[in-house]
Design a protein around this nucleic acid. Structure first.
Lengths: 210, 210, 210, 210
DNA sequence: TATGAATGAGATTTCATTCAT
DNA sequence: TATGAATGAAATCTCATTCAT
């Protein structure tokens, strides 16, 4: 009767639960995670969890969706608005973001998408449309801007902006699978990659005709 | 005259079973694959499967191990023996192999390792030691050879040979997750990447001093 | 109005389940009893049973333990406090208890311990320490009391109090194995035994110097 | 081709198999023993075992039956023919046999009969008729002989010859269940018991009117 | 809302038994 | 006879989901 009323009544229960689920999925993967475990982590009863998420799969989808943050849009418009040269942007804001990814929750999402994605085509579609494609578009725009400004020569990066972020994905994979045995210097890897790319497409150098 | 209830008696039943398991894992992932299903695919009873593999996990390990073929060693010695220049090797045998990977069983292995690897540190260790590390060593040797011969300038590739194969991994990931919606031209991607890299480190060009 | 699918909610479900298990074990022995069967007897689903007892073996242990009632302590102190002569105690309370054993659940326990005990050294140790040893101590004390009071002559019963209860165990064995074919008059057997023993060690007779 | 022909063709295969089965049952009990295991111990293939014993249960019966040795008949006629006094016989041949039992295969049989007997009424009937009843008859005859000769007073042993052997059974039980923790001096126990009984029924003493 | 005891379908695993060789 | 690979029925155990409270 005298227990504090406030502080118990959380209105963001769903968020707490998806956060707990993300943590659980991160440790054991989707299939090996028990709903019981998620509920316990969230400090909530199983029944309540099912009040918010009708099935385990629904919970999974919520977790995935909750991390489709609109950062991409921000990045996109950043590129457009930015006063920086394309090269400076790559070396600055982009590099910073790229380096932060391998140790962010994105790593968990990657693992989840690789493991469970094929069973959830709608989720992967959603992801492709709302995260991956916009991001690639933004990168393509960045490259185009560099070409337009005379910084870059035309190159395959226009067709394959994926090449810019491939090492970021690689770092995440490595971290997921091999970190226990041998950590990779993902910062060094990613920086080196960006420099190599810039070196390859800078207008000031005579690179190959890719 | 009727179909024999007890089928053939083979010496390579284990191989048949791991092959069936790989196929099943490819379709559903490890956790969602029923042992029943693997047995059915292999044309074998559940009981027989358990005669060869004591647990489902044991079967998983056998699948993983059975695909750690000594191809890597072959590649390694190829590089050493090859009369080709490093550049020619990259554009020839290496590129061919790199392009073949995204559609090979390797893709399935990647999915399995990402999803289940964290639960099997010994398997990932085995993999790192017997596949990944040797492959990276071979690449490093190739780059070194190119530098020694004057083809390449010293570059970050010496420290991060992973950069050479990152797009290959990227292609596999993309294929696993997004192929249903949008196929990636992995051949073009990988070729472009190799050319970009060659352009970046060729001694004949004045790129940055990464 | 229809029978509720989810039945009552009790606090002593474990006790209900161990009781059901004891009954099932009594009929079929441990190994031949299906967990399913125990659940059905307890009016409970298999799943619930596993909620309380993690494995069938755990259930077995719980059954065994649940019957290690502290009756022995009661008996022990009874002997100490009793105003009766040792002879009267043997012919009275002790005989009554001894005669009741062959038709009590103890019989089932004996069967279980004989069949499964060797695989559960910790359980047998527990049993020896908490049931058998105390009981033998109590008997030894009783005999000693009789000797001290001049009722009994010193005899082998001091060293081997087991001799007092051997026919009780024998009755249980007979009952387990042969009751279907030929019931043994265990009451007569046990009474006769006690009288023979008393006759053999009474100070008023000149028996052998065992 | 040159392998020795002889010494491989055993005509007493069944006996070898039942012996192996007894050993296996002794270690794990009937239910927990795998037919595979018995075959391996017997140095024989599973198929061959099934050629001799149609089912595992059949094998069990064979094991039980194979140990119904006709020793009892020997004992019986021994008693009849013996020139010894009943007392001397009890202290001599009988005691020797009684002491040998707790460490003989009989112990295994007891365990098997207690665990599996209730499921095999025909086996227990067979046992009762061919082993237990004759043995009790022999004991009864021995006691009667002692009474007739004036050695013993009439006593309950005439009605309950089981009392003579109860401690033997007790020793076996103890050995099965508790030997790991605390060995019982079964020789001392049994000797003491016989002496107590003789003391109780000897005509030369004034025991109670049992 | 909130709980957690209870369910039941289904997955893994075991093993007596069969049969092609 | 003799083998042991192969079967399949059945047992143990798991866990997403439900529902009385």
């Amino acid at each position: 009767m005298s227990a504090p009323r406030f502080k118990r009544r959380k209105e963001d229960r769903p968020a707490e639960i998806t956060a707990a689920a993300l943590a659980a999925f991160a440790e054991n993967g989707y299939a090996a995670t028990r709903v019981d475990d998620v509920a316990r982590r969230a400090g909530v009863s199983k029944g309540l969890l099912y009040l918010y998420f009708a099935t385990k799969e629904e919970l999974f989808r919520a977790v995935i969706r909750s991390f489709v943050v609109p950062k991409i849009d921000a990045l996109k418009s950043d590129i457009g608005k930015s006063e920086m040269s394309a090269t400076a942007f790559l070396r600055g804001p982009f590099l910073e973001m790229a380096k932060s990814l391998p140790n962010s929750p994105a790593k968990i999402l990657v693992r989840l998408m690789v493991a469970e994605g094929p069973k959830h085509p709608d989720l992967t579609a959603y992801y492709l449309e709302n995260v991956v494609a916009p991001a690639l578009d933004a990168l393509r725009a960045l490259i185009a801007k560099g070409v337009a400004s005379g910084e870059f020569r035309p190159s395959a990066l226009d067709t394959y902006p994926q090449l810019i972020v491939a090492p970021v994905m690689f770092s995440m994979l490595w971290s997921i699978v091999f970190d226990t045995h041998h950590k990779l210097d993902s910062n060094g890897l990613i920086e080196s990659h960006i420099e190599l790319l810039i070196g390859a497409i800078s207008a000031s150098t005579q690179g190959e005709k890719t």
